[in-house]
Design a protein around this nucleic acid. Structure first.
Length: 303
DNA sequence: AAATCGGGGTT
DNA sequence: AACCCAGATTT
């Protein structure tokens, strides 16, 4: 896209965002880098609708990195219920402790990348949304929008290609709004399935529309039924520990469908390796749990 | 580049 | 039943 067209395209996008953007999302109404970090980690592969409630509850309970750093891992895992990808909860917890250790949330992309669970997207998002840094934020939505509008492809290209397209499309100022506008355009108009090209504000500049909006090649990858996957079993085990505290291996096996039970030991070993479960007197428990009085073996002394 | 890591809503 | 979702990390 030549510079004049890109300028006009960005202006049309900006006007659209002013009217149709999701300005009311709670994480867009704060510049607190900790709050923005919490929202971005939650939004890693969890839909906006489900993050809304969890985000508000999380900040009410742990309003600062210092507060989160003092929480137990077990409480953090329990508060993560319903969000999926439980390792993210532990990574966010560890990030809070790293932030306390270094004194503040890092202000640069490189500094943010050093936090556990913070990759290219999250680092750019926190830098741009909380600090106003002049960096391109590229999530799946933005990748798809740029692949279509700039590259003329039906789906996102390789990360490197999209990243350079995003850099080239960055405006000189108001980068935060620009990044948010691209994300919202991808989420609301330039959707993966059934895009609303007829109402797209940047349709006149879109290389994909100009090419006749060719469909993406059909993928043949067949995914196994979710209930048969290790991820499903792991989720069930963590859910059981969340719900009922320390459990024997027998009790944990009953939390799984019959077909998974022969692999119970392997699942628990993997969860222990991830820090999501620990051995205890009664069998297994969430990590970092203060010993609950009365549920412990008789050998544990009273204080 | 591909696999792993949850779970719920949408089509 | 397949697909989608504000990704990160490991192999």
């Amino acid at each position: 896209m030549d510079p004049d067209a890109a300028l006009a395209c960005r202006r049309a996008l900006g006007r659209w965002y002013s009217v149709h953007g999701r300005h009311a999302l709670p994480w867009r109404q704060t510049r607190d880098p900790y709050a923005v970090l919490v929202s971005e980690v939650m939004l890693q592969q969890t839909g906006v609708g489900r993050v809304l409630g969890a985000f508000e509850r999380w900040l009410a309970r742990w309003p600062s990195a210092a507060a989160l750093a003092e929480a137990s891992a077990a409480d953090v895992i329990r508060a993560w219920a319903g969000m999926g990808y439980n390792r993210r909860a532990l990574q966010l917890h560890a990030a809070a402790r790293a932030i306390v250790a270094r004194g503040s949330v890092p202000g640069t992309v490189e500094g943010l990348r050093s936090l556990p669970g913070v990759g290219p997207y999250t680092a750019a998002a926190v830098a741009s949304f909380a600090r106003g840094a002049h960096v391109a934020v590229v999530d799946t939505n933005v990748g798809r929008v740029l692949a279509r509008a700039v590259l003329g492809l039906p789906v996102a290209a390789g990360a490197t290609t999209v990243a350079s397209a995003a850099e080239a499309f960055l405006p000189a100022r108001d980068v935060r709004h620009h990044n948010l506008a691209l994300m919202d355009l991808g989420a609301l108009v330039c959707r993966a399935r059934a895009p609303s090209c007829a109402s797209c504000p940047i349709g006149p500049w879109c290389a994909w529309q100009a090419a006749g909006a060719p469909p993406a090649p059909v993928r043949t990858r067949t995914t196994p039924a979710f209930a048969t996957t290790a991820r499903f079993a792991r989720g069930q085990l963590v859910a059981a520990l969340r719900r009922a505290g320390p459990l024997s291996e027998g009790a944990l096996g009953e939390a799984l469908p019959e077909a998974h039970r022969p692999r119970l030991e392997a699942y628990l070993a993997a969860l222990a390796g991830d820090g999501l479960a620990v051995r205890c007197d009664a069998g297994w428990a969430l990590p970092g749990e203060p010993a609950p009085q009365g549920k412990r073996s008789m050998a544990s002394p009273k204080l």
